[in-house]
Design a protein around this nucleic acid. Structure first.
Lengths: 152, 152
DNA sequence: GTGCTTGCAAACGTTTTGCAGACTC
DNA sequence: GAGTCTGCAAAACGTTTGCAAGCAC
């Protein structure tokens, strides 16, 4: 349900099933391989925030010997297709999730707590950036750091 | 002039000269070494956004053989002291600058254009995050991605 | 002289790439 | 069979670390 703030619709597809994505892959001349299908299954089952490493482990649980480089290559293609996005929640690995589930993150620099921020919070910023700077923001890609309630 | 939004004053020192910082270093039991002084000179002369690699090159122009690991170690100490901050403007290396000059960045995903965003733009977000989530944001650390005027 | 700092080399964690073989269509 | 995709190994990238020598105080 959470929609990107003001992005052209083409950048975020309304994808709802693994088979749908695989059909899209085929339509682009790609192949519906086992590693691709399983990666998608994992992505659809998870609630987001998985690193490439974690995805690789989950995929390998169902199909051993899927190499992490394959995970990365498939993640990259799925991103090019607009099916998934990745975001940076801190200094470590990127987090991948379905584009439709993307949202902004607030991360506490002290304790590392991750807060999922509703897009409404970014509306005034999005409007000001567009009106004053002609810039359309995508608040999902990089987390916003700061300090949570308990760390003050 | 640009102040952090709502951070305790201790997190951003009003530092105005190389010697002042070196005095602080000594006060903490540190040494005023050549590499430290030159790194600070470069940081004070630059207008920000320098990567460790670029800083290393600038320092080496005045004192050859200063190793990049020394740059990193000094940058880390200066950060601990609150003299400088680093931020991530994209997928590459971090950018370092004097804490007093820190500001937010909008980066175009298409063309890479970097826009320095005034803190005012973040006030409503800062207020909403604080009021609704108890979270104090630091909008400077990670850039906000999006699309600039010409890339629409 | 004490002990902080440095250069070097080597490691780190994440991600990318070159290649030959395997697979999908 | 054509062309995509994979596993593996190796490299790339930015950054960190262990160590012995060097320097500031």
């Amino acid at each position: 349900m959470s929609k990107p703030l003001a992005l052209p619709p083409s950048r975020s597809l309304a994808i709802s099933s693994v088979d749908e994505v695989l059909a899209l892959v085929r339509a682009r001349g790609g192949r519906a391989t086992a590693s691709r299908r399983i990666l998608l299954e994992v992505l659809f089952e998870a609630d987001g925030h998985l690193s490439a490493e974690e995805l690789a482990q989950a995929v390998c649980a169902r199909a051993p010997d899927v190499h992490i480089s394959t995970i990365y290559r498939n993640l990259e293609e799925l991103q090019r297709m607009g099916v998934i996005v990745h975001s940076h929640l801190g200094h470590g690995a990127a987090a991948y999730q379905l584009a439709a589930l993307a949202h902004a993150h607030l991360i506490c620099e002290e304790c590392g707590a991750t807060i999922e921020a509703p897009d409404e919070l970014f509306r005034p910023l999005a409007r000001a950036a567009r009106d004053k700077l002609g810039f359309t923001i995508d608040p999902h890609h990089f987390a916003i750091l700061g300090h949570c309630e308990s760390c003050g």
